[in-house]
Write a protein that binds this DNA or RNA. Structure first.
Lengths: 376, 376
DNA sequence: CTGAAAGCGCTTACAG
DNA sequence: CTGAAAGCGCTTACAG
């Protein structure tokens, strides 16, 4: 194919170069570019772009030829160039607290799958419970011009939220007060969940309850979801005040499982309890250890309830009674809030996510002897 | 500040527009661009770029002024534009098998932290053990022109590896045969780990060993790391053939914990064993459940060893004896392979990652009665 | 169905 | 220390 001199100029010679030196000894590869495949296929660059984006406006013959060249060159469009030119992005940012925590890992996976249904991809970031890192994650995602942003974290940072709101990017937050213009909210019914957990213990006959929390150390910020669970516990206990419940609370910072273990250690022999409610399954796991280290049997001597219904609950010994939050519903709400067309596009929506007590084998009626066993 | 007519032209009026309509009612925000801040600060666009990138070539006065405008506009450079112009990227791609598995979650975190030391960020993708998804992840990362790519997965896909090699992007693979030009290898000493595990059981007096595997269903691809562990088990057993060991193997597909549980169920009463080696901690967790469901005590009746030393090992009941792989070393090797300047930049390196038996409370000498208890 | 040209929002030599 | 201009590799109207 001949190229007219007017098109040839500098461009053409450069193309030849980069097409030839495809793998360089120095390491950094020179990527073939769209012009390279256009030249080799004898078409214009716009046509290559059309087959790339499956416009359907290209004839079969041309398309096949172009695709052949693409394959032979291992051509891959440059994400940055195409996104810049396209001025939009098919990725939604997802911020979670911590990937080690199965709840977040499971949720991230669910969100990713749900997003895939809308042909969107997920850019995942973890904050490790740090408000600063949350803000940094927001900045980074905003710079990446994501199509939407989901903040599904325990910790809450006002600055991060304001950045998101100011950007006007569609967003969805977990457990945050109220929706605003472009920002939706998913509120987990932690109160209801806690209520169910406490009621369950009370119905079994428990009157001496220990609540094990796991706030973050020093950072000053309470974890929002944990705070809601605290409130849930308090109101549930309130609702049964006529039963003269005896309740205690321990709060230990740090990784959940360690916290649970240390919480029990700090309380054994000093506090009377026959049922413990852990703010998190991971904490409950540590509670198990702490109890077992003191030869306290579950549920014979002490009943334990967790929160989150993470995968390992079933595999603990005994399997853990816990409060479940549906990852499927959560992810559907999040992606729906971000991607689904709505009647009032300028108004964020408000979702309620119900919880669900899953009774397994870690709860049973209190052992009559246990009650006195551990009077302080 | 006056703008000479020659600079004014179309550009200038557009700038005014986008600077003004900063938040639009329709939702999609018009982002301020570098030209907007330049105009407002009364400097050229190149100067703004300089303060953005901290070249240090800008006077304090100018810089302060520009930064003020940046803040007031909430200007954020467009990632795509800057990366396109810069022609390089500060992100390294990390592909793992599954975020639900604590080993990968912990490793991802470690790699992210190590990368941060080099001012690099991580783009994380999970394959869910699917070779197809691994290839897709590679394609996507390559399109994002990442600075390096780390493939830390159980499954292995030849196509994905070839794509990476062909791209010339620095890479590092886990448990893959040998390094090539731009590709390094980290080999975990699974064999040594397995040997230590088996030896440990043998030294305790166990002669009847059950090996619980967890291959992927139907996909035809064996998980590489699992395969190495298989081999490790086999050679360890071989080394003690003079003791006339009695070994069995069960292999169940699916999520690790379920697999472990079902493996035990399928074998109870039909196979004689006093010690079980699980390919994975998660599998071991299921083995616990299976054993406990049959009222078999650990380690009194049966000893159990896991592999990976994930965080929950300490919290199982009893705490699980397992083989540890250092996430810190692993991440240091991975990032080092990708980012550290070396004498022969064209030659991939080969790392060995040793393993480490952690003895906890799930292993003990066999119960003399147990041996006959479960003769098939 | 195809091509030529403008433009996406930055960075980076190159001059001054 | 600062500015003007070229260029990064695409997409997308706009013509033909």
């Amino acid at each position: 194919m001949d190229v007219k001199p007017t098109n040839a100029k500098a461009l053409n010679s450069k193309v030849e170069n980069s097409a030839l030196r495809s793998s360089v000894a120095t390491g950094a590869r020179k990527w073939p570019k769209i012009q390279d495949v256009a030249t080799l296929a004898g078409v214009s660059l716009g046509t290559v772009s059309a087959v790339l984006n499956e416009n359907g406006r290209v004839s079969v013959a041309t398309r096949t030829r172009v695709q052949g060249v693409i394959a032979s060159l291992a051509y891959r469009p440059d994400l940055y160039a195409s996104n810049l030119a396209r001025k939009s992005t098919q990725v939604i940012g997802l911020i979670v607290s911590n990937l080690q925590n199965p709840f977040f890992a499971e949720t991230a996976q669910a969100v990713e799958e749900e997003a895939a249904r809308y042909n969107h991809q997920i850019s995942l970031m973890a904050t490790n419970f740090s408000p600063e890192r949350q803000r940094a994650a927001v900045e980074r995602l905003l710079g990446a011009r994501i199509a939407g942003i989901a903040v599904i974290t325990s910790e809450h940072d006002r600055g991060a939220r304001e950045l998101v709101l100011a950007s006007g990017v569609p967003s969805v937050f977990l457990d945050v007060a109220k929706p605003e213009k472009t920002s939706s909210t998913i509120r987990v019914d932690s109160r209801g969940g806690m209520q169910a957990a406490v009621e369950h213990l009370i119905m079994l006959g428990h009157r001496d309850l220990l609540f094990v929390r796991n706030s973050e150390k020093g950072s000053g910020t309470t974890l929002l979801s944990h705070q809601l669970r605290d409130e849930g516990f308090a109101t549930a206990v309130c609702a049964y005040s006529h039963l003269k419940l005896n309740t205690s609370t321990v709060d230990i910072a740090g990784p959940g499982a360690d916290a649970g273990e240390r919480a029990i250690a700090s309380v054994i022999g000093r506090v009377r309890f026959t049922g413990v409610v852990a703010v998190t399954d991971t904490v409950a796991m540590g509670v198990y250890r702490g109890l077992q280290a003191s030869n306290i049997r579950i549920p014979k001597d002490v009943s334990v309830v967790g929160f989150d219904d993470t995968f390992f609950c079933r595999f603990l010994n005994p399997p853990l009674t816990t409060v479940s939050i549906s990852r499927e519903q959560l992810s559907r709400m999040a992606i729906g809030a971000l991607l689904q067309p709505q009647s009032q596009p300028t108004q964020g929506r408000s979702f309620k996510l119900s919880t669900n007590l899953i009774v397994r084998e870690s709860t049973a009626p209190p052992n009559p002897r246990s009650r006195t066993m551990r009077v302080g």
